[in-house]
């Protein structure tokens, strides 16, 4: 049974038909990436999975269970955590308080303390700045914080929305290194990226979205070899 499965999902913003029948699967332990241009529906797909947007048609299954019956805050308890686009962090709270909020869905104090140590190992910069107000962190540090905060929920499936957006190239590599590390520790990841080049380097498999539809799905290597992907997303002739 796949970790996550979307079957023919249609979603709307008002009258705008944003997702026109998305079907995809994510297996346990994988990194799967969704690539596509602006407005292709990548973020909408993530919002639909996390319950912030309800599909008008089609189903989202998490380990075979229909997620339609759950609200957004309940899906967090099912083990799905999201790293929002644009690093939605609590800008006025400190780093430590943000991480605290990430563990909101849990009650095991000991486990939370362990995970705090773990994310501080993963992101030592955050440990240095644990008492700093999050809004004053640099862009890369805010991305780290958003990721770390999602990990504090000890998710089985991590949804990441454009983690490289607005970061300096040297930081982008660092972020993707961390993504691989998180995956090695056993977290399944669905990664939405415009930076197809980097995303296909770390992912096992990928899907290409165009105007609300999936036009291609293959292994990451397969996509990298695909002439259409090379031309449209990797900038190769």
């Amino acid at each position: 049974m796949p970790m996550l499965e979307l079957q023919d999902v249609h979603a709307y913003y008002g009258n705008i038909h944003a997702l026109k029948g998305i079907s995809l699967t994510v297996e346990e332990g994988e990194i799967v990436t969704l690539i596509g241009a602006n407005g292709a529906g990548k973020t909408t797909t993530l919002r639909t999975i996390s319950g912030l947007l309800k599909p008008r048609q089609g189903k989202v299954y998490l380990e075979g269970e229909d997620l339609d019956q759950y609200k957004a805050h309940e899906i967090v308890y099912k083990g799905v955590a999201m790293v929002p686009e644009g690093r939605g962090i609590f800008a006025k709270l400190t780093v430590a308080e943000n991480l605290d909020m990430g563990a909101y869905s849990r009650r095991d104090k000991k486990g939370i303390a362990e995970d705090l140590e773990r994310v501080f190992e993963l992101f030592p910069r955050l440990k240095e700045r644990r008492n700093q107000v999050a809004g004053t962190l640099s862009g890369g540090e805010q991305q780290m914080l958003a990721t770390a905060r999602a990990l504090m929920a000890r998710p089985r499936l991590l949804l990441m929305d454009e983690p490289s957006m607005g970061l300096a190239p040297v930081l982008v590599e660092d972020v993707f290194d961390r993504i691989m590390e998180i995956n090695h520790e056993g977290t399944t990841i669905l990664l939405v990226e415009q930076n197809a080049h980097m995303a296909l380097q770390v992912a096992h498999r990928g899907y290409v979205l165009q105007t609300g539809e999936i036009v291609l799905g293959d292994t990451a290597d397969g996509l990298r070899q695909n002439p259409m992907v090379q031309k449209a997303y990797l900038g190769m002739e």
């Binding site: 805050h73 308890y77 869905s105």
Partner: peptide
């Protein structure tokens, strides 16, 4: 107070 969407994504019942 800080961000309703993010709060919901943290598992808070708004």
């Amino acid at each position: 107070r800080e961000d309703e969407d993010v709060a919901e994504a943290m598992g808070i019942n708004l």
